[in-house]
Design a protein around this nucleic acid. Structure first.
Lengths: 239, 239
DNA sequence: TTGAGTTATCAAGAAAGTGTAAAGATGGTT
DNA sequence: AACCATCTTTACACTTTCTTGATAACTCAA
């Protein structure tokens, strides 16, 4: 096998392996470390997600069949705040599974059993990309006034005090923040937070915007962050 | 997670297909164009390389088995000056071929016969990447005198002070601005802002033009921006 | 100058949209 | 089974926007 010599960026690349099968884990550990990669390991989705947030790996190898959470779900959750390369491993060779994973945000998909050489080659491709694409190692944290939204850790702070938000509250806030400064229609919020079948339940949005304001605004009747655009929707205000 | 806004870049993406087999070419032509991609075709490496230089496609689908030049060679030549995504198609399923192609600079590798759905999914992955890498596009902002209309943020400023407009007011202003310098008839304004069933209510337009002037003009009786063209309609004045 | 048709202004009532509290429903946990 | 957090649903008060009619001002041609 004519492998290329480990290049300098490979040597320093940090890879997170999320895989529950001890045998595959052992095998990949040997392969990857012997090729000069630094390795982190997680045996379940929960721990994997946590480590992505805390360790910031350069690349994620994700087994689709984890015990605690579906791999698709993991991919989607990651893609809400990071664009770190995800290579999916799976025993499923069905076209539908591949398409679903790739469209959920995965960057590559390999079917088990895979060839080691191909995995390493695809790893090199991915790392080549991420080096070109991301010279900035900026933390995905959104800040505005006293408010801080840490997308990686799913935490919201107001003057350094953590604010607890329910899943829907948080989801709505991240949507507003993603379009910061722009108006988001109630319809769009419903579609993104509840799904496309809820687009008529416009009162949901009002209830939750009220709750968000109660938690985030000093004076909910005179909001600084979440501005209503009557007849249109809501906007996260930026200076 | 719901998908991001229907990516206009996908619809308009230009793909160069370098493939000598007429049958596969015909098949891919049908598949790709029916999915909204714009397509260029080359039947040999020579022509393919030429077209990359002259047409600047967003993505290249490259058959490895071309008559005049080896696909590896093509990849290497391209990588000397461009980082345009290359997806390789090949009948060769050998690990060595894949590794060689990927290390030569290809971004993905599919073995014939490949599944259409997977190809399309991997296409979406590649285009997603190139979109992230692309620099931000300028947001559309209309300016005239002290007035600034920020279409992307749905905001209107007068000497840097934000002016609040109701939905209809804003709608009418954007119509006028869209036809800046040209006369827009009352009928047309009614049709665009209220809908085709209101085209007789010419009264509405007068009321709202008055409101707009009150908000935007320093002296509403001597308008600088919104000019009445008696007997015809209104015109947004440009110098 | 006069008068008919068009345009501008104003303000009140109607309609639509929004904010808020709180009760009921749901689902998971102990 | 009782608890808890969260989500859903309802009801009502409130705000903003839209519609409408009355009236004044203007334009242009006879």
């Amino acid at each position: 096998m004519t492998e290329l010599p480990p290049s300098t960026e490979q040597i320093n690349s940090l890879i997170l392996l999320i895989e529950d099968d001890p045998q595959i884990r052992r095998f990949l550990r040997a392969t990857l470390t012997s090729h000069g990669y630094r390795l982190l390991e997680a045996t379940n989705a929960q721990d994997g997600l946590r480590q992505v947030g805390s360790q910031h790996p350069d690349l994620i190898i994700l087994d689709l069949g984890l015990p605690d959470l579906d791999g698709l779900e993991v991919t989607q959750q990651l893609r809400e705040w990071t664009s770190t390369t995800i290579i999916v491993l799976s025993v499923r060779d069905q076209e539908q599974d591949k398409i679903a994973a790739l469209d959920a945000g995965a960057d590559d998909y390999l079917t088990k059993p895979f060839s080691t050489g191909e995995l390493l080659a695809r790893l090199r491709v991915a790392l080549r990309h991420s080096r070109l694409a991301a010279p900035d190692v900026e933390e995905p944290v959104f800040t505005a006034g006293d408010l801080r939204v840490d997308l990686a850790h799913r935490q919201v702070f107001l003057k350094n005090n953590e604010i607890h938000l329910t899943p829907i509250e948080y989801k709505l806030l991240t949507i507003l923040v993603r379009y910061a400064g722009k108006v988001v229609t109630g319809r769009q919020l419903l579609k993104e937070a509840w799904g496309p079948t809820y687009t008529t339940e416009s009162h949901y949005v009002r209830v939750y915007m009220g709750q968000l304001r109660r938690k985030l605004e000093t004076d909910p009747t005179r909001p600084r962050y979440i501005i209503t655009e009557p007849g249109i929707g809501y906007r996260f205000k930026v200076e």
